[in-house]
Simulated scan of single mutants.
Amino acid sequence: MLKKFLSFIFILTFLTACNEDEIQSKSVEWEKYVNSKFGFSVNYPPDWNIGEESDNEDGINLYIGNPDVQILAFASYYMEEISNPYGNAENDGFDIQRITLDNGKSADLIVGKLDQMVNYELVFISNDIIYNVKAEVSKSFFDKNEDTLLKVVKSLDAL
């Protein structure tokens, strides 16, 4: 009888500890990168090591330390005749999906595979500025982090 009781207490303690870990991981606040030159922000997980802002202040590398992962948040002045991400995506056979950002605005998500890497790019154009959150990652990284990447891209907010 004592063994059953102790086993029950052990299982109850284990389940309680798991729930506390789950609650703590859900309550962890994400970091926010704010770009003052183009007036946008994007959220990212606190365990990502980010780089320094680029010299021309157009954006930042949101994930450094892994050669199979490049995740950038950046903006530039949009000139359709010079930089058209949609033409490149169509030429490479990528899918273009319309999504709703966390701020309620619509943007395009371009997804495809090229040279063993998954390309995952959010494109939002407003007031002659093109805002991007672009990931070029290994298939294994993408498979493990697809939900996180979607959460990052959907957090883009043009201030």
Rank of each mutant, 00 (worst) to 15 (best):
S126D: 14
I60S: 03
Q24W: 06
K151L: 01
D102E: 15
Y120M: 02
N49Y: 12
S7A: 13
V153F: 00
V42R: 01
N119M: 07
D47M: 12
E146A: 13
K154R: 08
V28D: 10
E57D: 11
L15Q: 10
M79C: 11
N88C: 13
L159N: 08
I82P: 09
L149M: 02
V34M: 02
S54W: 14
F74T: 00
L150N: 07
D108N: 15
Y33H: 00
S155K: 00
Y120V: 01
F94D: 11
S83T: 12
Q116A: 12
M79I: 15
N49D: 15
K154I: 01
D102S: 11
L149A: 01
D128N: 13
L150H: 02
N84P: 14
D58Y: 04
W48V: 03
Y63T: 07
F10L: 14
G65I: 09
L12H: 09
N49W: 11
T100Q: 08
I130D: 09
N61T: 06
E29D: 11
L62P: 05
K154Q: 00
K134E: 10
N19H: 08
D108P: 03
T148L: 06
F142I: 05
Y78Q: 12
Q97W: 07
I96L: 10
E57A: 10
S41N: 08
K154E: 00
D68P: 07
S25R: 10
E57N: 10
Y44D: 06
N132Q: 12
K105G: 01
I99P: 01
Y78V: 04
Y63N: 11
V123Q: 09
L2G: 02
T100E: 12
E29S: 11
S27V: 05
V133R: 02
P45K: 04
Q116N: 15
F94R: 07
F124D: 00
W48E: 06
S7Q: 13
I11P: 13
K4F: 14
G104Q: 01
L122W: 03
V137E: 04
F40V: 00
Y131C: 03
P67I: 04
A75N: 06
G112E: 09
P46R: 05
S7M: 14
I64A: 09
N56I: 10
T148C: 04
M117A: 08
S7I: 14
S36L: 05
I125S: 04
I71T: 00
E22S: 11
Y86R: 12
A75V: 06
N56T: 10
K3Q: 11
S36T: 10
S106K: 15
I96C: 07
F124P: 02
L114R: 14
S155P: 03
V133K: 00
M117H: 02
L149G: 04
K26T: 03
N127D: 14
N84R: 12
D157Y: 10
A135T: 02
Y77E: 14
